[in-house]
Write a protein that binds this DNA or RNA. Structure first.
Length: 183
DNA sequence: AGGCAATCTAATG
DNA sequence: CATTAGATTGCCT
């Protein structure tokens, strides 16, 4: 039984605040929309970031990140919620794609080496999309920096999610605030 | 420029 | 165990 400690971090994002879970190993989950209790084990109580050391550290870095005082989060990640190809892809993404950089779905698939060569170009890319879509550790693992070969790509959470993705990429200087990236 | 088929993983009944 | 859905791509018309 892993000790997931959930708490809420307020952000300037269109979705308001994020919900984050930490364990003894590091950050295990981070979801944009607090209303959706994705992966939230029943019976878990929200901790008070001010009263918990780990939560406070995470909340502080998130605050710095959103305020523009910090570009890359320096927090340990607990990969226990991921497995198999998902873990491979997400870890590749986490270590390879930094601030202000983006990678295409196909590119990430290729880089991760989790897929056999010779497959049609679109197949692994779609899988990467699925994986990123169920990315349990948003923001820390830069799921929002994964874009389509042709345009911006999509994002979970519908229109709200897209707003978040655009917000983040704009803030990282990848997108021009005034222009659409879809060319 | 717009439409279509191929292919992979994770989640659910 | 089988079926469904999903944040894609490249080629053809």
């Amino acid at each position: 039984m892993m000790e997931l400690e959930w708490f809420t971090v307020s952000t300037p994002l269109p979705t308001g605040s994020m919900r984050v879970a930490v364990t003894a190993q590091g950050v295990a989950a981070a979801a944009f929309n607090p209303r959706e209790s994705v992966g939230l084990p029943p019976g878990t109580e929200l901790a008070d970031p001010a009263g918990d050391r780990r939560a406070a550290a995470v909340a502080a870095q998130f605050a710095d990140y959103f305020a523009g005082r910090r570009q890359d989060l320096d927090l340990p990640v607990d990969w226990r919620l991921t497995s198999g190809v998902q873990r491979t892809v997400l870890r590749t993404l986490h270590r390879s794609v930094g601030w202000g950089r983006t990678i295409t779905y196909g590119g990430l698939a290729d880089l991760s080496g989790a897929f056999e060569p010779g497959l049609p170009a679109g197949a692994p890319a779609r899988t990467v999309g699925s994986i990123a879509g169920s990315c349990p550790i948003s923001l820390l693992v830069p799921c929002h920096r994964v874009v389509a070969a042709d345009g911006l790509g999509g994002f979970g959470g519908g229109a709200e999610g897209m707003a978040v993705k655009r917000w983040l990429l704009t803030r990282e200087g990848v997108l021009d605030p005034e222009l659409d990236w879809t060319g």
